[in-house]
Write a protein that binds this DNA or RNA. Structure first.
Lengths: 219, 219
DNA sequence: GTCTATACGTGGATAGAC
DNA sequence: GTCTATCCACGTATAGAC
């Protein structure tokens, strides 16, 4: 450990600079993310930048990798507590919207970075990969939840997952320009009502008969 | 008229530069839209830029105004030929996707410009206004179409229109990163099936009984 | 291995020539 | 009114000092 201390410093610098970049990006937009601004924000000398990153594109790769990966972790996460499909879908969509509402500037910056990534080959690959990963994750959670509650979809779940992603993205994007909470929540309500028409509760659900016996709070 | 000839030249220059900007933006991204690149593209001297625009932000305003306005014109346009709700919704969503597929780089640039606009107060106002205008247009067309076919929605049409916009935006955005035609069309299929569950054909539709008599090709 | 000083290119905006 | 030459600020990247 004592010998690797110098190397560890190098990796820590990278993380430090990435975090500083995210801060600048969030507050002032992607255009404001310059090597000078980032290093100044991190309290490091300007020269340290090209000591940690090959180029600015390299930095953006690191940012995209870290932040998009972070977004994936809690995507349409499983059961929570078994509720009817419509409410479950609404909850999933609402979770994402709530994140955006809580940190609008951050997600605005992320959106900026996403569209920007398509201009660069390397960044584009990364963005596509993350998107695919995200779809897999949502599909996985959707499957898990459907199996647990004994639900069947009138279409393959990857397709349903893609639809849910498009919906949450679209609603979030719309909120970002309008900042209209009521309208966004109405969209979610309608979306949940719509999408739930694709699901049919199969008769195999043994655990939950006509009346669900959920111990605890039942509203 | 003879007296205003000089002024007309000025306005024509503006349009000329805006068009050049859109071209550059489409081919190389918003970041490449510099005063020099734009004037060069337009075949004009660099100095002519600040002769037509107060600043670069002023140019972006003009671009946003022109291009977003252009997007609105054909938004979920009315009847076409009366078909069932699900097919009609799918057609509306498909129309937008087809536009994006036909000119991906253009819409990518437009997306770039949209997210970028939120960093500037003036541009933000413009983007919001255009978005509201777009919602009004879709709602208007939705109302018209529904009335013509005697349809009733289980929710106010502005809410439905907002959902449709979010859907088409989300699906288009998803396509822009994946470039997966099949997946996008599957999303549209599912979306149309979902949303059509919100509509109930009222008994007032006299023109179209159980079997529609459409002259011409009936596949 | 860590940081400073600097080179080099570019962009936005302007003053002044035609 | 139209265009040229130029200014100044900033951004990336590097060579070399500590």
């Amino acid at each position: 450990m004592a010998e690797t201390r110098e190397h560890r410093s190098h990796d820590e610098r990278r993380r430090q600079l990435v975090d500083a970049s995210v801060a600048v990006m969030t507050e002032q937009g992607v255009a404001a993310v310059t090597t000078r601004a980032v290093t100044a924000r991190a309290g490091l000398p300007h020269g340290s930048f090209h000591y940690c990153f090959d180029s600015k594109a390299d930095l953006f790769c690191a940012i995209l990798e870290q932040e998009l990966g972070r977004s994936i972790v809690a995507a349409f996460e499983p059961p929570a507590t078994p509720v009817d499909p419509e409410e479950r879908i609404a909850a999933g969509l609402r979770a994402r919207l709530d994140q955006v509402i809580a940190r609008p500037d951050y997600f605005l910056a992320l959106a900026e970075l996403s569209v920007l990534s398509h201009r660069d080959a390397e960044l584009g690959r990364l963005a596509r990969w993350e998107q695919a990963e995200y779809l897999r994750e949502v599909t996985r959670n959707l499957d898990e939840w459907s199996r647990a509650d004994g639900l069947e979809w009138s279409a393959p779940t990857p397709g349903v997952a893609a639809l849910l992603i498009a919906l949450s993205d679209g609603i979030a994007a719309s909120w970002l320009v309008e900042r209209n909470d009521a309208a966004a929540h109405e969209s979610i309500r309608l979306a949940a009502a719509s999408v739930s028409s694709l699901v049919s509760t199969s008769s195999t659900s043994i655990t939950s008969p006509t009346t669900t016996t959920t111990p605890g709070g039942a509203s």
